[in-house]
Design a protein around this nucleic acid. Structure first.
Length: 629
RNA sequence: CGGGGCGUGGCGCAGCCUGGUAGCGCACCUGCUUUGGGAGCAGGGUGUCGGAGGUUCAAAUCCUCUCGCCCCGACCA
């Protein structure tokens, strides 16, 4: 293809709206243009890369035994009502009505449509298992789209759904997909890691995310430095300390000062609201403080309960864990009679939301402005505490009074062990975010490190959640009807391309991994008005095309510097520079985008040499060691 | 949705506070020079100042409403 005939509107300056590198570079390299918030047009170069990622996905899915189909982007509300998600899904689901006043949505995912299809077409265990996928445009009406293709509202996604007659087969397919995803991201030339993940809104029993490691990632990954364990921080469990008599534990584990339980004491802490301020003011480590966070629990829109969550001063609440815990509250204390009927109203399963309480609530339950909450003397709340608080002695908490904290606080000061008290209840649970240096929850001996990642793929073991709701059953060999076991497997195609840029760029622009570069080679005749230069360039270009190499000939009548800048910005893996000076000696330069130095080769050998480099790059693009910073 | 900010030529911005001629850089067009890292000189075109209403002799500028967008927090491929 001739450069002059392609729509490649490169920009010298950074677009004002773009924040992250991939977004900036995609706009500057003329790959995408914004149409509305989170909605983009893919220009020729952008689309070629997206299609290359899609093609890798397609090849690997097909060879893993999945079948490609295409489902509609517009789906009827009716199907979503069958699964129960029409009301549950929230505002990201873009809903509208057709001219007959029937309700529809633009698909954010396709569990409903696929389950409906399979339940109609597959009746017998003989037809299972089956794995169907599509590569389609999805729409999620994100609250705040940002970062270009990384978090758009409209995006291209590969979504696959598998149907099985039993758990063994379903699980085998799950791991088949796990391996397939590893192959896909390896082929894309990405440095990634598969991590254990939370199942979120999709539901299901277990799940892995595929994370591309990048500083701009929005997810945090906890990884063990000695075993294979890796998990999303949302998911990563924190091992409770061993249940040993606190006095026998090492001091750093329990933050026990080793002495006797001391009586509660009030201290004046004017204006010291954050744990950091309090720690500094009282000259104690953060670990000696217990933070008290007041949360409201909602079921649907209705506020149900206020809870106080205690975590050690140097820890943070993991709201996913907290939410899960709250959802099971009722089950944990089946016999508990709450005098104020707070707990009874909890349904015990879905549609529960938690949020930090507003100022008024904080003041009502603590009797103090926010910043001074503590567990002693709280009103109308349930208290739950993180495991790390268990065993602490003589610690510091808010005083539930302005400018006041308590020191030498102990459990007995606000709760009687783990038994319900008339107004308070305390339970220890895993409620905090895992932190760097924590012991690995799997091997126990390794230490946790935290990395940032971009989620490019997610696989879920769904179980029977949708098949039961939508009556997707099959006839088993004993004649009984059973719900199919499902799995679902997603890949953000556009996001994968963006993630590749986040991971492969320098100050001059993108450095594409060869397998997903829009073109593999750019041939740069530095002076298109010099017949010798142009003839040599054209000859090389034609030969590359003949060899099956995707080449672009920059035939624009521009200064050399301009062409170099564009080539670097767009990030073609290899460029062939044809200039008058070298040509006098019959030479041209073959330059890798990823390396500074250029190779001088004879005109006749240029195409061949370039092809070798491309093949080598494609071959080695997937690193064998995907993750070991 | 809460908080902050921005809408002025294709792009990036100034002008607004203190009302009166719409400006700069890049890009674009023409000519000459230049030609291995986003050229130089000369000439040229380009705007319903996001939209609606209001105040005023006069509004990009002040006021009200509205739309769009960006950034920081709670959701997700």
């Amino acid at each position: 293809m001739l450069y002059s005939r392609l729509l490649i509107p490169t920009l010298k300056e950074d677009p004002a709206e773009a924040e992250v590198i991939s977004h900036r570079l995609m706009v500057r390299a003329g790959m995408i243009r914004k149409v509305a918030a989170g909605i983009y047009t893919y220009l020729p170069l952008g689309w070629r890369t997206v299609m290359k990622v899609a093609e890798i996905v397609r090849q690997e899915m097909d060879s893993a035994g999945a079948q490609e189909i295409m489902m509609p982007a517009v789906q009827p509300a009716d199907l979503w009502r069958q699964s129960g998600r029409w009301d549950f899904y929230g505002k990201e689901l873009l809903r509208f009505k057709d001219r007959h006043d029937n309700e529809f949505c633009i698909a954010p995912t396709a569990e409903e449509v696929i389950t409906d299809l399979v339940k109609r077409e597959a009746k017998s265990y003989r037809q299972l298992p089956m794995n169907l996928y599509q590569i389609q445009t999805k729409f999620r009406d994100e609250i705040r789209p940002r970062f270009g293709l990384m978090r758009g509202r409209e995006f291209i996604m590969k979504d696959a759904y598998s149907f099985h007659k039993d758990n063994e087969s379903a699980e085998a397919e799950y791991w088949n997909m796990y391996e397939t995803y590893k192959r896909i991201f390896t082929r894309c030339g990405l440095n990634f890691r598969a991590v254990e993940a939370d199942t979120g809104n999709i539901g299901g029993s277990f799940s892995h995310e595929f994370m591309v490691l990048a500083e701009t990632g929005e997810d945090f990954i906890a990884s063990c430095d000695s075993c294979e364990y890796a998990a999303n921080v949302e998911k990563a469990e924190c091992k409770p300390p061993e249940q040993v008599e606190p006095s026998r534990l090492p001091r750093e584990m329990v933050e026990d000062d080793g002495g006797e339980l001391k009586p509660l004491e009030k201290v004046h802490t004017p204006g010291k609201k954050t744990v950091e301020e309090v720690a500094e003011f009282l000259h104690v480590p953060l670990k000696k403080i217990v933070k008290t966070l007041i949360y409201d629990v909602f079921e649907g829109a209705a506020k149900k309960v206020t809870i106080a969550v205690l975590v050690r001063g140097d820890h943070e609440v993991n709201e996913i864990k907290l939410k899960k815990f709250v959802m099971t509250l009722k089950n944990l204390w089946p016999g508990y009679q709450d005098p104020n009927e707070y707990i009874k109203v909890m349904s015990g399963d879905k549609n529960v939301e938690i949020a930090l309480a507003d100022k008024e609530t904080v003041e009502r339950v603590t009797g103090a402005p926010s910043g001074f909450a503590g567990p002693v003397g709280l009103k109308d709340v349930i208290i739950i505490a993180d495991h790390a608080v268990d065993g602490m002695r003589n610690f510091i908490t808010g005083g539930n009074k302005a400018d006041t904290h308590f020191k030498d606080v102990n459990m007995g000061d606000f709760a009687l062990g783990v038994t319900p008290t008339p107004v308070h209840l305390i339970k220890f649970w895993d409620l905090r975010k895992i932190a760097p240096g924590d012991p690995c929850p799997k091997c126990g001996s390794g230490k946790i490190e935290i990395f940032k990642g971009i989620e490019v793929g997610h696989i879920f073991m769904l179980g029977t959640k949708y098949s039961e709701a939508m009556k997707c059953t099959y006839k088993d060999d004993d004649g009984s009807d059973k719900p199919m076991i499902m799995g679902c497997y997603g890949i953000g195609v556009g996001r994968t391309a963006a993630a590749a840029i986040e991971q492969n760029n320098d100050k001059n622009g993108i450095i594409w991994p060869a397998p997903i570069a829009p073109y593999e080679v750019i041939v740069l005749p530095l002076n298109v008005n010099d017949k010798g230069v142009m003839d040599a360039a054209t000859e090389i270009y034609e030969e590359l095309k003949k060899d099956g190499v995707e080449a672009l000939l920059d035939d624009r009548d521009l200064r050399a510097g301009f062409k170099f800048k564009d080539a670097d910005l767009i990030g073609f893996p290899v460029s062939v520079v044809v200039g008058e000076k070298n040509l006098k000696d019959g030479l041209v330069e073959v330059k890798r985008r990823s390396a500074g130095e250029a190779l001088k080769v004879r005109v006749s050998e240029a195409a061949c040499k370039t092809g070798e480099i491309i093949n080598e790059k494609k071959g080695t693009a997937g690193r064998k060691r995907p993750f070991n910073p």
